[in-house]
Amino acid sequence: MSLLFSPNPLLAEGHFWLTLAEKEDANVLINQLARSANEMESGSLAILEARPVLISNLRAWENLILPRWYHHGENLLQHDRFLHDLLQRAEVNEQQFHSALERLPGQLDLGQRRVIALLRAYMQEASCWVLEEEWLEWLLDPRGRNPVLAKIYQCMPQPKSTLVLSLKACPQEKYQEVAMLAQQVGEGE
């Protein structure tokens, strides 16, 4: 299946919103977007899913540097410094935080997994972020959100474009609605 978006969040700048007919559609859409983004530039799309998928045999620290390390190479010290700068700006207690980074994904709760996913997106320096609706609610809800995540999120440079995938209608004042222009069957999905 091939999808075309208007405006295309991979090319345009700003905050975009795509209303889904069903929640299950998100997976196909994200795959399509990722494929297109990787064709343009490898690793240029970061995905913040409601339940972030981390690589289970890598520690949290390895998970968050993996895409950056794979695409940019360089040495680990440089990546460490890049992360350290952000954590310092966000005034996060690094010693406490490092104990979470040493754990395997199976030992992290959902909140910690989301923090790792957000840091992975930051480290990836992706130009476009795709957020599932739960992320948006979680970030906006002051009681529900993780205080560490809130501080980090505020200090983060924002990507060129963000796309929210939601079942709800687009809040026109903040987001530009994205329409799917075409849907072709042909790639055997």
Binding site: N31, V53, I55, L66
Partner: peptide, 25 residues
């Protein structure tokens, strides 16, 4: 087992989405 578990848990798909080559990595 490691590869099958990664595939079932969606980790292989996540690697592809991040632009990592499954063959290479």
């Amino acid at each position: 087992i490691e590869l099958a578990s990664m595939r079932v848990a969606g980790e292989v798909q996540e690697l592809e989405r991040m632009g990592l080559s499954v063959t290479a990595y």
